[in-house]
Write a protein that binds this DNA or RNA. Structure first.
Length: 236
RNA sequence: CUCUAGAAA
């Protein structure tokens, strides 16, 4: 089963969607028992093909095999529902969870944001705090993204949270903050956020460069690009 | 030896 799973996993991560489906059917024919790893791999493939029907059928397997206790399975399922235009299914699954971890909450947060309901993402964040779940860098990142769609006020509020939890100098969070300000046209704030990032990577640099570009500061964009070539990080 | 959420373009 482990070798089947690892084969399936490589197919899925290379985007070989039809091939993985074939492999899956073959597993069925050979009488291989699906375990939770198989299911998670299948869900990954559903999410790249954004296929709610497939997703339902995998959900069926989950129920049939009593895998509802595996958080990895549930969280992947949640994620797939959340991005297959069936946010409501995601929500009802989420509400039914007895044990929600940071990943469940964060997944739900992105779900709302991607569905164009960032206000509900904020409401969700508040419930998360009430539930005393500790947010991590990913959570904050998603919160920032939600706020960047709302208002400048909310954005600053989210930035404040990032600072209070000392996530502001984390690369990924810092880059999100930078980008958020860039989209509001607050180029100075974006620049400050950029400078506060500890270990800038390619993504932070290119975010800053396009930030200048978006605000018509072509000269600064080019200057930064030159600096990047001098002492910027290597692509990774 | 296999599995879940996250940032720029």
């Amino acid at each position: 089963i482990v070798s089947w799973n690892s084969l399936l996993s490589t197919l899925v991560s290379n985007g070989k969607y039809p091939e993985s489906l074939l492999l899956f059917e073959k597993m069925g024919r050979e009488g291989i028992d699906l375990d939770e790893v198989t299911v998670v791999n299948l869900l990954q493939m559903c999410k790249y093909s954004a296929d709610p029907i497939q997703c339902k059928s995998v959900h069926g397997h989950v129920l049939r095999r009593a895998m509802e206790s595996n958080p990895l399975v549930l969280n992947s399922l949640l994620d797939v529902y959340a991005r297959c235009n069936v946010i409501d299914s995601a929500w009802s699954l989420f509400s039914g969870l007895e044990r929600k971890d940071v990943v469940s909450w964060s997944t739900m947060l992105v779900g709302f944001t991607n569905c164009g309901r960032p206000d509900e993402a904020l409401v969700l964040y508040r419930s998360m705090v009430e539930a005393e779940v500790i947010p991590n860098a990913v959570t904050i990142l998603n919160l920032i993204n939600a706020c960047s769609l709302l208002s400048e006020q909310k954005s600053k509020w989210a930035h404040g949270i990032a600072i209070r939890k000392s996530f502001a100098e984390e690369v990924s969070v810092g880059t999100a903050i930078l980008d958020m300000y860039a989209k509001c046209g607050l180029i100075e704030s974006a620049k400050k956020a950029f400078n506060q990032i500890r270990d800038k990577n390619i993504i932070s640099w290119s975010a800053m460069i396009t930030a200048y570009g978006m605000n018509g500061l072509t000269h600064d964009a080019l200057a930064l690009h030159a600096q990047l070539k001098l002492h910027g990080p290597k692509p990774n």
